[in-house]
Design a binder for these strands. Structure first.
Lengths: 331, 331
DNA sequence: AGAGGAAGCGAAAGCGGTTTCGCAAATCAC
DNA sequence: GTGATTTGCGAAACCGCTTTCGCTTCCTCT
């Protein structure tokens, strides 16, 4: 267990060189003969030496830690981005220090001071992908700040987020490819940024195909019961609808139940496509799918965030992650 | 931005005391007059001094970092425990360093050495809550190790996990309370630990009520399509079944579709209860529910793990988190 | 052969604190 | 009033490693 830990000076002594030489040999820096370097290395290996990562980071002024600021860490989407980024960063020996806005009464300024005091190496701001822009904190840190699954008011911020318009386009294109022409859309609050943009993308493709919505877009909530409720209205108003683009899988689930309850077949009479890829999010491994959906690429966002953070100079601006259609039984 | 960061010697100088005195004053240790202590404190405040957490930890030999070992960080349950624990730990200034077994070819021994080199303050091992015991790593660290959502072979390990038997009991008790008597059970692989224990708990309550399963327990997979498939068989064999305890919400979803497809009403003819609380996991905020389910308490596991880690001496042994019935429209 | 430059290595100075230890002043006992 | 304690504070060592800087060698070129 607590077998005496080997320090760099032990290695240096054993190798018969100075502490500084040992350091340089192991770090690959500075001018050192290949022979010495190799000798120190093998000695270190033989002794089972491991750097005291803490002291090491400390001497370098870096903490090997990334600060993460979330609005609500319990949000399922936030969790996915968080877990993915943490995994990637962990593989690169970077720890994460999470400050959730919901916890404690620490305000943002306090969090920033704390993070700076800890000599954080970078910051990730994770949003919820919907309505509100994140305030730009970039100028308050002297380390890289990356925004994930949100947007900010400063166009020079490094942002990685979902491509909601493309999601809308993909959804309608998919339905069109299945021969559907009388398409409706049920989605969330009208002021929700993601809902708006998905609808806009969808309409764009629809217009290109010379079509219009089979019934006006129904804005409501990101909820299963709203899907159910909206479909009931929809079928009353446009009974011949043959496809519904649902703004989320939750809405899609509710919608499917209502469509079936009306005696219609899915996907025979009405095709359904959602957004989020719930089943994947809930299952991890590949599963047989039920609801056709669009994966917004949350894990990819997490991966890219980690990659950009380790990148010495990421290009500023918004980077959209490509969404993917996941075909299943409802289309 | 990069406003010159205040160091402890700045404070000492400004307060007209030595570095060591300043350190002691701010740490509350050693013999120091209250006047001096107060003076140093206000000076520090005035200057906006913040400890360099890194140097500080370093000097104390602690990293303010918790190591987290996961089997598969992309597992949705793992993510919940991880995110919750990270949030709680973040509130206590503890960072987490995540090593996922799936990433890289770093084996466990290597991870352990890395973590020890980093002078980690504690370790969390997060399992997937199902089949396999986690190997006990406690003796390989000299800091606290806590196992979450899994079990180990060493009864002295500190473990916090779900109470699968209680989940089974609650499910059947709930169905009985709704007046159901012809109850069936559809669940996952027969060798899955969670599936077994849930079934065992359920049978216990059933037996107490002088009942038996309406049809033998159907073991299959944790998947939606299995729920659909199993219900079809079940209804053929026991058409008068009036309630189904589904081993997971995914199974429950499939089951519901099949029950409705058979022309039966839910919950009129057949009541359904699942396990996992998917809707909550996918929504965070309180939503109107559809499927009655049992929340296994993943977030509570995460919270307790964080609390135990910060606790100077946690009691060894297994601690079960109480599951909760979440009533909705299917019962 | 001699000058100049590059390569290799170690001494020493940090990094930003904590902690031990010793000394001087203040308090106490008698 | 004198000696024994206690109290308050600072000098210095230390944590484990990185990095600068200067001193030797060893080449290379003329």
């Amino acid at each position: 267990m607590a077998d005496q830990v080997i320090t760099l000076s032990d290695v240096a002594a054993a190798a018969g060189v100075s502490l500084s030489t040992a350091s340089k040999a192991l770090n690959g820096t500075d001018r050192i003969s290949e022979a010495t370097r190799e000798h120190v290395r093998t000695t270190a290996d033989r002794l089972g030496f491991r750097h005291n990562a803490l002291a090491r980071s400390f001497a370098r002024g870096r903490s090997q830690t990334i600060g993460v600021l979330t609005h609500r860490a319990s949000n399922p989407f936030t969790r996915v981005v968080l877990a993915t980024a943490a995994t990637e960063l962990g593989a690169k020996e970077q720890a994460i220090l999470l400050y959730d806005a919901r916890i404690g009464d620490r305000d943002v300024t306090e969090s920033i001071l704390q993070l700076r005091a800890r000599r954080i190496d970078g910051v990730i701001v994770i949003g919820t992908g919907t309505s509100f822009p994140s305030p730009s904190l970039t100028s308050r840190f002297d380390v890289p700040v990356i925004y994930a699954f949100t947007f900010t008011e400063d166009p020079d911020d490094v942002t990685i987020t979902a491509d909601d318009e493309e999601i809308g386009r993909l959804a309608v294109r998919h339905l069109l490819s299945k021969g559907r022409r009388r398409i409706a859309h049920i989605t969330a609050e009208p002021h929700d940024n993601a809902a708006q943009r998905r609808a806009a993308g969808a309409e764009e493709v629809l217009a290109e195909a010379g079509l219009r919505w089979a019934s006006p877009v129904r804005f409501g909530r990101w909820r299963e019961d709203w899907g159910e409720e909206a479909v009931a209205e929809l079928l009353a108003e446009a009974p011949d609808v043959d496809a519904i683009f649902c703004g989320s899988d939750a809405i899609g689930r509710g919608a499917e139940r209502a469509v079936r309850a009306s005696g219609r077949d899915v996907p025979g009479d009405v095709a359904l496509i959602g957004v989020d890829n719930w089943e994947q999010l809930m299952h991890d491994q590949r599963v047989s799918r039920h609801l056709t959906t669009i994966d917004v690429g949350l894990e990819e966002i997490g991966r890219q965030v980690a990659a950009h953070l380790l990148d010495p100079d990421p290009q500023p601006g918004v980077r959209y992650v490509a969404p993917q259609v996941v075909t299943a039984k409802t289309t």
